[in-house]
């Protein structure tokens, strides 16, 4: 084979690469966290259809999923996400603080503190609940294997952690809360990096007696695996999880996608968007849709991070930054 022929092949490959980028429709990239895969798989085509009906413009929506903290890190490092739909406000705060890619007051730009849907943290146990788990204090008992992801990398895990902390605080007092959480983490045999990894560990690999899980993840697992293998346990008390969404100003301005990104996030609040969220076991913020799905979501006493921990920034600093309470518990 001659050198010329090789050169031709390389040039051809290169031109294919370039042209495939140039010819693509307008694309929107949504960087999200693990448990929203199914939600956005249904929401994206719905929005594309809506957008095309509104403007006649065809768009491609791409998804990237991973642990919430990791996704934030990727956006800070240059992942061209037009919108982020992450597990908690703290991760988007990090994008504002370290990446300077959107203004600090991003959370005031959309209704309900930029949370189109909410969720909470509940337990998934094996069929028949052999360890008799009913509430948070059962997780701290010796001999119970608890599965939860690593709060350093997983947004979901931070909700789990803070819910346990608040339970400990209310039941045993401020001073004993850390001890209570430490007892729970002593029972954790595997710390996965993301919520989905933990779910797979519990469900597929059969490790652990109880999975601390997003409500939507627990329902999804139940749906995928049938009712026969697992049971959902609703604790007496849990946290109001407010997954937040935001558009990344620096990215949309560079790509010229601000209008689409704005419409995309607004559409999450529309009746159709809310229906899709509820169908995927997220608690809708729209009262009409919420009423329709009321039977699906049992009432729990829920607390807000803002009230109990003075907001995510504070919670992050006290509990999850280097040297925070998690490090104190786990590195011991």
């Amino acid at each position: 084979m001659t050198a010329n022929k090789w050169l031709n092949i390389i040039l051809l490959a290169a031109s294919l690469l370039i042209s495939s980028h140039a010819l693509a429709d307008k694309t929107l990239l949504n960087a999200s966290y693990d448990p929203t895969r199914e939600l956005y798989q249904e929401f994206n085509p719905a929005f594309s259809k809506y957008w095309q009906a509104q403007t006649g413009e065809k768009i491609t929506i791409r998804q990237s999923h991973g642990g919430s903290g990791k996704q934030a890190r990727s956006v800070i490092d240059g992942l061209d996400a037009d919108v982020v739909t992450l597990a908690l406000a703290g991760d988007i705060d990090a994008i504002a603080a370290y990446g300077k890619l959107l203004p600090d007051d991003w959370q005031t730009r959309l209704p309900g503190n930029s949370s189109p849907y909410t969720s909470t943290v509940i337990f998934l146990v094996r069929k028949g609940n052999p360890k008799g788990i009913k509430d948070w204090n059962d997780l701290a008992k010796p001999g119970v294997a608890v599965i939860t992801p690593n709060p350093k990398t997983s947004g979901g895990a931070r909700w789990n952690y803070l819910a346990a902390w608040e339970y400990g605080k209310q039941h045993f007092g401020e001073a004993k809360a850390k001890e209570f959480v430490a007892d729970i983490f002593k029972n954790v045999p595997v710390l996965d990096s993301g919520a989905r990894g933990s779910a797979t560990t519990f469900i597929e690999r059969g490790i652990g007696d109880v999975l601390i899980s997003w409500e939507n993840e627990a329902f999804l697992a139940l749906k995928e695996y049938g009712q026969g293998k697992f049971e959902i346990i609703i604790p007496s008390f849990s946290v109001l999880a407010e997954p937040t969404v935001a558009l990344i100003d620096k990215v949309v301005d560079k790509k010229g996608t601000r209008k689409i990104a704005e419409a995309y996030l607004q559409y999450l609040y529309s009746d159709e968007g809310q229906e899709i969220a509820a169908k995927h076991f997220y608690r809708p913020s729209n009262e009409k849709v919420a009423a329709k799905y009321a039977r699906q979501f049992p009432a729990i006493k829920l607390f807000k991070i803002d009230d109990a921990f003075g907001g995510w920034k504070n919670a992050q600093k006290v509990h999850f930054d280097d040297g925070g309470t998690f490090d104190q518990i786990y590195l011991k």
Partner: peptide, 17 residues
């Protein structure tokens, strides 16, 4: 090459990924 890396800002300015 990351946005916060050594060459990141220059690459972003020239629209190179």
């Amino acid at each position: 090459f990351g946005l916060q890396g050594w060459l990141g800002p220059w690459l972003a300015e020239h629209d190179l990924k």
